[in-house]
Write a protein that binds this DNA or RNA. Sequence first.
DNA 1: GTCTATAGCGGGATAGAC
DNA 2: GTCTATCCCGCTATAGAC
Lengths: 216, 216
Amino acid sequence: MKKSRRIIAEQEKVDKRDSLSQILNAAAVAFMENGFAATSIDTVADVLGSTKGKIYYHFKSKTDLFLAVHQDSMTQYVNAIERIALGGGTPEERLRGVLRALALQIMTRFAFSRVAVQGVELHMSRSTTPAQRKTLRSVIEMRDKGEQIFVDIIAEGVASGQFRRCEPRLIVKPMLGAMNWMTMWYRPRADETDESREALAASIIDYLIFGIRAEP
Amino acid sequence: MKKSRRIIAEQEKVDKRDSLSQILNAAAVAFMENGFAATSIDTVADVLGSTKGKIYYHFKSKTDLFLAVHQDSMTQYVNAIERIALGGGTPEERLRGVLRALALQIMTRFAFSRVAVQGVELHMSRSTTPAQRKTLRSVIEMRDKGEQIFVDIIAEGVASGQFRRCEPRLIVKPMLGAMNWMTMWYRPRADETDESREALAASIIDYLIFGIRAEP
DNA sequence: GTCTATAGCGGGATAGAC
DNA sequence: GTCTATCCCGCTATAGAC
């Protein structure tokens, strides 16, 4: 296996006895590299260290496998930021908290995060079964729920005067975009530490809170 | 042709006598919708209103076609921001100018912009000819050149004290990410005007300059 | 449960007509 | 220059062995 692929695959501490988790993880790594359409089930099997027979025993189709990865990614993400949003603190403290959770999610679950970003792009309108469409709808609902968490915190901060007057929905797009764009340029490295990840997250979050202008 | 596709295709005022531009435009629209791997040459031909014979007469392969669209997109973008960066004004004025040019580029050349974003993702390491690799290198160089323009303006503003003390390279990633992420949620609409586009660009740029915190 | 073998087809690319 | 017809490879998905 390629070195970069190994680093990313090893981010997930997968229970070696759980076939399903192993497959999801291998699929995330494979889809991450070349996208849904350009990734063959044989490639996923290669990453997994088996043949595609194993995959088709657990998943009905390539689309189902992709959606399962996508759903797993979104579930963990929304759970993480929801917990923080419901915790205490000022709007700014909570906004920093959810942004930090998103940044760390992207860095420490990189393959899954990239699949989630791809999934937003894919319509998959054609050739989807009703069951697949149902899964896709639930994933989109989770994404919207996650975005709403950010909107609510910002609206609260505007109401309290801590944030400047603005339309929260218009702020959320560039704010989350700046974070999600990490999936384009960031790549996990073997020599990373919790501290280096926190530092990177903090520098981005500071920018997203303060902007670039010097205090007058 | 689908309505949304028609709106986007008509953004480009293509010279009806120029086969090459017509093909590039049709390819951009097709690739925009489903990505490189999932788009067949027959689909591009459909958008073009011809058969794939015409396309293969002008382009050696699907990869060459994609790279031509990508190159066209990046060339226009870099030319646009370079002109503005070399003009006069304070660092903040010029930063606003290049951000505005990027935002308008994404909105008014939407299909090409989405291809450019995809292209960054595609490694295309396998099955590329030396000529293709050369094109890909030149496109990547253009992208880096564009990013450097932003870095330089920010560094200048930091030096002059107009911008807060920061590492320009770390600011540029989220700043451009916020803009490029528009390709994920923005969609051209038939009822748009120059004014509505300027307003949207301005709201994003204000956020990227000021951040979200109220003045203390 | 996982493997091997293969059916079936979509789509890239080409040859040759016009 | 553009179209039609076709070759052929690669990949999804399945059948059947173990």
